[in-house]
Amino acid sequence: MRMLTFKLKPKTAFGIILLLTGVVVIAVSFIGNHPATPASKQTTVSCKTAEERVNYINSLGFETDSSEESKEIIIPTRFNDVYNKYNEIQKKQGLDLAEYKGKTAVMYTYHITNYGDNDNVIANLIVFDGQLIGADLCDTSADNGFLVALNDKT
């Protein structure tokens, strides 16, 4: 049987311990800031067809007369205060327009027919590449105007 021995000076031993401690601290910091799995996102909602879009609106308890208006929009590359506030509404429902800055999307608008006595309520669905990336419910009247997340039940 052979034995291997070596001598370390106290300064060298302290240096090795200090180096190993530094490596452990860096590794723990890196792992803590970079989780193995990305943050959970809302499951994607397919909105490729008018039927899928209307079904999504209906699934949230709203009814529509199925008349649809659409227009292309460009998500700005830099958000101003209005877009930042609008994106906060999107984040509350698991969506985030920041991922689509500079992209061209389509906004589909539907008239909501079962929002109490209010006939001015519309639902907007923002769709990119067939997937829902933004949605809101708003009252277009000047007197009672509001804008909330489409899944907001208040």
Rank of each mutant, 00 (worst) to 15 (best):
A39G: 07
G130I: 05
R78Y: 09
S141D: 15
R2M: 08
N144M: 06
L20C: 12
T5S: 15
I17A: 15
S70M: 13
G102V: 07
M1W: 08
A50E: 10
G116T: 11
Y83F: 14
F6W: 12
I73Y: 01
L132P: 00
K103T: 10
F146D: 09
F30C: 02
L8G: 03
G15W: 12
K9Y: 12
I75F: 03
L97C: 00
N87P: 06
I75M: 02
F62P: 03
N84Q: 15
I122L: 11
K11V: 13
F128D: 06
K11L: 08
Y100W: 08
Y83Q: 14
V121E: 00
I16N: 08
R53W: 02
C47E: 04
G102Q: 07
Q42D: 10
F14C: 08
G145F: 11
S59T: 06
L132F: 01
V82L: 12
L97M: 05
N114P: 07
N114W: 07
M107D: 10
E63C: 01
M3E: 10
S29M: 11
E52Q: 15
Q42R: 14
D96R: 10
L147Y: 04
L60I: 05
G134L: 04
A142Q: 12
L60H: 05
I122N: 12
D143E: 15
C138Y: 14
A39Y: 09
S29K: 14
N84V: 13
A135P: 00
G22Q: 08
Q90L: 03
T140H: 07
L132Y: 03
D129F: 06
